[in-house]
Write a protein that binds this DNA or RNA. Structure first.
Lengths: 217, 217
DNA sequence: TTAATTTTTTAGAACACTCTAAATATTTTT
DNA sequence: AAAAATATTTAGAGTGTTCTAAAAAATTAA
């Protein structure tokens, strides 16, 4: 499979939200910053290889084997992201571009050994789940803090737009990946939140709340 | 620069032994398992980019900027090899193919951070030197044990053909990368060698001696 | 030094991927 | 339901890399 084919599968997986719903040619073209006609060409190719179900003018969805391939690429991408952040000290917002390249390296042994080296992580630095070798992963509920009701408990699993300034803020307030967080109260006039982070109580603005993901349950 | 262009530069560097001597079209084709006509095409392209000096029917050599590029690729290849062996527990003989892919990843930051993560190694697992960021590296004398005179001292820096059986042998005899080795005596009738490895004396066959590299001085 | 052999290049085609422009199908509006 | 707008596909072309077959240059042998 070529890197280009892999990128198309990934795009279809994301646009179909992993549920296998039909994805339009234009949507794929936009996501991949390419032209609709190029998408059509590639869909024919992927259809010949039985990786997508394609009917002209109707859109495409991943076949079972297409979904397995997409999840395998996602697994590689996210494992490399963990590596870059945990072992090479990249910041959360710097890893995507490099991981886009690394995910196309072809070696099953490499990924298995990388997985082991990283201690079989379950989520990447953005809090997204890492599929297992056989394409399974926990479908947990991932929400931004400003989307949940008062009283909700969860674990900090990632950020949305990770600027350096924001990461510094988290550092200064001792909020880290894996911390248990509960929403204690919400100020109506500005949407700011009172949280319990592990044992401490802190107060964060709505902008901050709109950038922090927690996993519920 | 495309992966293909990078591979050609690497091949020319190796065939020219790093000294800039002229390399023939056929030699490149053989090394790269491609056809001479493909090589000619690529030489024109690389020549246009000022990476090689090319005169029809005469062969090619790397220009200064071609040499810088080649050394940069070599640096990446060898750093990745160190990573695979030291961090992911690959065997010496398993790393080449994967490193061939990894060396084409484009990110200066990645290589800098990898270098740091590995502790700025000077040689790869095969004992070959790793060029610095600016393309400099130690030109030490690297010889097989069966090529040196009795009395020669050196440091174990690698193996030639690294089979699992051979690596096991080294393990069992406590011979490792970086060990100081001296050739004490040579048996004429079978070419076997008496060595001092660190403090111990051991006796190895000529087959073993023909597979172990030491760095002299 | 001419002839034979080898090496290298050119010409032309194939494959993968992408694009533009034009044609066709679908959806929305009236 | 016809017209207009939008979405999608087809046709044809361009780029990068590779190949085969034939031509040209260089080298070796007679």
């Amino acid at each position: 499979m070529t890197p280009s084919e892999e990128n198309y599968l990934k795009a279809i997986y994301h646009l179909g939200k992993g549920t296998g719903e039909l994805v339009s040619t234009n949507a794929i073209a936009e996501q991949m910053r390419t032209k609709p006609s190029s998408v059509t060409d590639m869909m024919k190719k992927l259809s010949d290889k039985n990786l997508v179900a394609y009917r002209r003018y109707q859109g495409v969805s991943l076949t079972d084997s297409g979904k397995i391939s997409a999840l395998s690429i996602l697994r590689k991408h996210r494992l490399w992201e963990v590596f870059l952040v945990e072992k090479l000290d990249f910041a959360w917002n710097e890893v995507h571009e490099v991981a886009e390249q690394l995910e196309h390296i072809k070696s099953e042994q490499l990924i298995d050994k990388l997985d082991q080296h990283l201690g079989f992580p379950k989520v990447d630095p953005h809090g997204d789940p890492i599929p297992s070798k056989n394409g399974e992963f926990k479908k947990f509920v991932k929400k931004l803090l400003d989307e949940v009701a008062v009283g909700t408990e969860g674990v900090c699993i990632g950020v949305k737009d990770s600027s350096v300034a924001f990461l510094n803020f988290l550092d200064k307030n001792h909020i880290a990946l894996g911390d248990k967080i509960q929403v204690l109260d919400k100020e109506e006039f500005d949407g700011s939140l009172h949280l319990k982070v592990r044992d401490r109580r802190i107060h964060i603005s709505s902008q901050i709340a709109g950038n922090l993901y927690i996993e519920i349950q």
